[in-house]
Design a protein around this nucleic acid. Structure first.
Lengths: 213, 213, 213, 213
DNA sequence: TATGAATGAGTGTTCATTCAT
DNA sequence: GATGAATGAACACTCATTCAT
């Protein structure tokens, strides 16, 4: 892998390339994505992609690093603005969900990455993900100290939140297909209204972690 | 795609090929898996794979169909054996988790499949997955009718269970890497003992769906 | 580099591929040769070249190893047949020249290889070349012991023989161009009749190494 | 090919570019050399190389023309200073050797050029090389007239001198490798002391061409 | 039934060259 | 004069697939 312009501010062209690349990596995965297609869709020659960003691997890492660091930044900013533990948990979940839902490439890429055992994850990315888990850990610990949350494993909660939010975000096309297949019984679920679902997940998690009384 | 021997009993050789293929599809995804490598590892010539199973896509579908139908079968069998709604929910989660954890290729393959929007999922597979969701729907409806569960969206619960269990199963390598990176603070989570985690997830879900009083 | 069929008898197809490759490596060098052109000229698909022989580097090594080992074998056979030191020296030179002149790819490939400092020469090849030098060393030592040759450095003699023979073999096209350029004065040299040149070189070397009286 | 500034005095910058280029062409050949690398090592932008010197071919010709014309000039100057035929021959060989050994790029480039049949040699270069051969021809003719040299083909002698000197100069790295491979028997050759080798070659050639009595 | 051999259509990557500034 | 940016045209190499045996 070669990475270029690493410490410089990223140019608009590079940003555009990475945005297009993100779509392709999300839809087809690293191995399935085609540099030709990315270049064609970005309206930039293949050689220019190599000139600007580097090889396919650099493209992939550029996409992931940008996503994860953005998420980390957004989450930190928004969680810091509230003080109540329960509210913090809600904000954490809402922020996670907002980010994942507003950036449709995030879930597919992350889920594939997890599926491959983080084979292509840099330490940088892993550290950023670890920080996110640490935020949640602090929130839960604070809530437990205040008696609003029960003693609960933060890793597990993170798993549930991440799992639910990412599965929800990524499974939209599959759910659509499932709905079309089962026309006999009405769709009994609200999984269409995104906002409602996120609120439900938040409520769901709160109920699961709140102190027994 | 060509599929051969679809309705025949699958031979031991074909079974072996699909087992090896599952490992490769799980580790590298459809695009990343190599027919050469599968053939080499299975100890069967590439041409024989084409003769026995079909092309790469047939191989992939063979793997998925087998997995999903196995899961469906196992879940139905075990859920039928209990009668109490709460217990059924627990059995549903335990069975899901047992299956996912005992078949390490399941989560990676499914997560990639979801990430790609079910691009390679046959109607057969989708129907099977829909049935699984229906089981859960019935369990929850029964519990709600009995007053032990609150009114809750079954799609959402399915999402949470699937998300948590699959993320847990698939994220083991990444969690290991994260632990190695953060040696300063003790690992504060129990995410190592599989059985305990599954119980926690079950408890977690029960708390989230149980009736308010 | 990947090498295939290493220990097997080389098939006719592989032999043919290497023969064509030799021409291209001789004319254009390793970097300048094109696998596409070799494949086209050999009438064999590019993929088949990779299937049979391996990558470009394997192709190159295949060519070199075959040449050097052939030369070693031929030289040993022919030198063994004579007993007189002077005659041996003559046979050594004649054999070297015969081989180099009958295999027109040898000189260009060897000269480029020497020019690049043996960057692509395997130990196998180097050892074979070393053996050749050892043969000459023995011949000269024997002659010196018998009083027919003066005390002379075998490395130097090898250099002179190799240099002259290879320069002669490889410089034919350049000499032709030079002759065309200088039409005013008759070509004063006999460098057209190969056999005569080789005899001259042999005579030349003998005069240079023969004992003073 | 485009050549610029051909008739102008060459600037220091262009001289520097050609010097760096010479190293790369010597080490990797025309096809193997990289304009990027030359530009990077010369500390001059690629575009500037095109602006100053021209394309890759112009770079190559610039290097060769400079080398050959330098050699021609040096040889003429030094040969003119002596009058005795034998001494002239010695000076010719010494000058050739001095030039080749002091300019380490000469032999590799020339040997590759010969190997490729002079495919990239301009008439200018060929003429210069022809002149060199003519000098030698005159020297030998003079010596023959004076009865100190036997009747000998000047082309052949040129071949032997050129072959020996260039092979000696270019084969240093390979000889080093050969020496490392054969540690059991002492290195029986003096091919390490450059000056001695050149004297040996001169002696060698003299013995080969001197009149029989 | 089984496979070695062969290959077409990609696939990521390189590199000499150009051009606007 | 000088160069960063951009790219077309290769280029080595891969891989799923086929077919004669």
């Amino acid at each position: 892998m070669s990475t270029k312009h690493v410490n410089k501010e990223m140019s608009d062209v590079s940003r555009h390339i990475l945005d297009v690349a993100a779509i392709h990596f999300a839809e087809k995965g690293f191995a399935g994505a085609r540099v030709d297609e990315i270049s064609a869709e970005a309206g930039i020659s293949k050689s220019s992609i190599y000139y600007r960003v580097g090889d396919k691997e650099a493209l992939y890492h550029g996409v992931i690093v940008h996503m994860v660091s953005s998420m980390l930044e957004v989450t930190r900013d928004r969680v810091q603005k509230v003080s109540d533990a329960r509210e913090k948990l809600d904000v954490f979940i809402q922020t996670t969900a907002d980010f994942v839902l507003s950036c449709p490439h995030f879930s597919p890429i992350m889920m594939r990455e997890i599926a491959s055992g983080g084979a292509n994850m840099s330490t940088e990315t892993l550290t950023a993900m670890g920080k996110l888990k640490d935020y949640l850990h602090e929130i839960l610990q604070e809530g437990t100290a205040q008696g609003v949350f029960r003693q609960v494993d933060s890793g597990l909660v993170h798993l549930v939140i991440g799992g639910a939010v990412n599965f929800f975000a990524a499974s939209t096309p599959i759910r659509d297909k499932l709905i079309q297949l089962s026309d006999e019984h009405e769709c009994k679920c609200l999984l269409i209204e995104k906002e409602a679902v996120v609120n439900e997940i938040s409520e769901f998690v709160y109920r699961a972690v709140k102190a027994d009384r």
